[in-house]
Computed example of a mutant assay.
Amino acid sequence: MICQRILVRGRVQGVGFRYSARAEALRVGVAGTARNRDDGAVDVVVEGDAAPVAAMLDWLAVGPPGARVESVEVSELTPTGLSGFMIVG
């Protein structure tokens, strides 16, 4: 089990990024959260087995149609046993 915090920058607000991220997280089988930041980025926390987390990271690097991801910053967190995927804020 691993947990990562992913900061996604670019045109990622106002394009359904968080809701699409939730759908993708449910599809690949990871838990976590997604929230918009005041600086225009989206902050995503993803927890699960390594392969599904990697698949989610690949998706976040592209995002949904209409998004333009310019950068992705990943940091490791300690897994806390998250369940489900929530859109925060």
Rank of each mutant, 00 (worst) to 15 (best):
M1Q: 10
M1N: 06
C3S: 15
C3H: 12
Q4E: 13
R5W: 12
I6P: 03
L7D: 04
L7F: 14
V8Y: 07
V8H: 06
V8Q: 01
G10Y: 09
R11Y: 04
R11P: 03
V12P: 01
Q13I: 02
G14L: 12
G14R: 13
G14S: 10
V15Q: 08
V15N: 05
V15E: 00
G16I: 05
G16Q: 10
G16C: 12
F17K: 02
R18D: 02
Y19W: 15
S20D: 09
S20K: 12
A21P: 08
A23E: 15
A23D: 15
A23T: 11
E24K: 14
R27V: 00
R27W: 11
R27D: 02
R27Q: 12
G29L: 14
G29D: 09
G29I: 08
G29R: 12
G29A: 10
V30S: 02
G32F: 11
T33H: 11
T33I: 04
A34Y: 04
R35Y: 01
R35K: 15
N36Y: 13
R37Q: 11
V42N: 06
V42I: 10
V42T: 03
D43S: 08
V44G: 00
V45N: 05
V45P: 03
V45I: 12
V45K: 03
V46G: 00
E47H: 04
E47T: 03
G48S: 03
G48R: 00
G48E: 01
A50F: 12
A50R: 15
A51K: 14
A51D: 14
P52T: 01
P52A: 05
V53G: 00
V53R: 06
V53P: 04
A54I: 02
A54M: 07
A54Y: 06
A55H: 13
L57G: 08
L57E: 14
L57F: 06
D58T: 11
D58V: 09
W59Q: 08
W59E: 03
L60N: 01
L60G: 00
A61K: 13
V62F: 05
V62W: 09
V62L: 10
G63R: 10
G63E: 00
P64V: 07
P64S: 06
P65G: 05
G66D: 08
A67V: 10
R68G: 00
V69C: 09
V69G: 03
V69H: 07
E70C: 03
E70A: 15
V72F: 08
V72W: 09
E73G: 04
V74I: 11
S75D: 13
S75Y: 04
E76G: 06
E76L: 04
E76P: 00
T78L: 09
T78A: 15
T78G: 10
P79C: 03
T80A: 14
T80M: 07
G81E: 05
G81W: 11
G84N: 03
G84W: 02
G84H: 11
F85D: 07
M86K: 15
M86P: 00
M86W: 14
I87W: 02
V88A: 08
V88W: 11
G89C: 03
